[in-house]
Design a protein around this nucleic acid. Structure first.
Length: 152
DNA sequence: GCCAACGTTGGC
DNA sequence: GCCAACGTTGGC
């Protein structure tokens, strides 16, 4: 059982979109970074905890909790020539991009990025590291416990 | 809109 | 394999 922080632009998929999706589940489409893909393909498992983070928006921060709810499978958007995530170099036989599904757990009052930075307990969080751009980052159990028990 | 940071591309 | 150029991310 591991813990993760996953960034989503709320314009594309917000915590409310996840809560209102069929089965409260969405496929995590559009990741086009190998390190993030490898997390989904190789390490993430059903039941892993997810901090759902809103990025590139007026109020960036943690907006709720979710869980990994599928094993890895090919991201369908890579085969869709009309999708912004289309990848002409990927094939059905050997898909380049894999994803997992995420299921809604709960929404919380936004824990702003600035608020996260105020806590020494979270100083080592990957998402807070200078220059971090990775859209999926591992979260330690201590960080998870602090955020879910003390900040929610 | 700016810009720092980082990943990817492609010429050599 | 190096590395400069370029594109993207994402907070501010």
């Amino acid at each position: 059982m591991r813990y993760w922080l996953m960034k989503s632009e709320p314009d594309e998929a917000s915590i409310d979109d996840l809560a209102n999706a069929p089965q409260r589940t969405l496929p995590w489409t559009g990741v086009r970074n190998y390190q993030a893909r490898n997390f989904m393909r190789d390490i993430m498992q059903i039941g892993d905890g997810v901090l759902f983070y809103h990025s590139s928006c007026p109020e960036p921060g943690i907006a709720g909790l979710a869980q990994v709810s599928s094993t890895p499978y090919p991201d369908p958007t890579q085969f869709d020539s009309k999708s912004p995530y289309y990848d002409a170099k990927s094939t059905q036989e050997s898909p380049r991009w894999m994803l997992i599904d995420v299921v809604f757990k709960k929404k919380c009052p936004l824990i702003a990025l600035a608020a996260l930075r105020e806590h020494d307990e979270l100083a080592e969080m990957r998402v807070l590291a200078r220059g971090n751009r990775l859209s999926i980052t591992p979260v330690t159990k201590a960080e998870w416990d602090f955020i879910t028990k003390r900040l929610m």
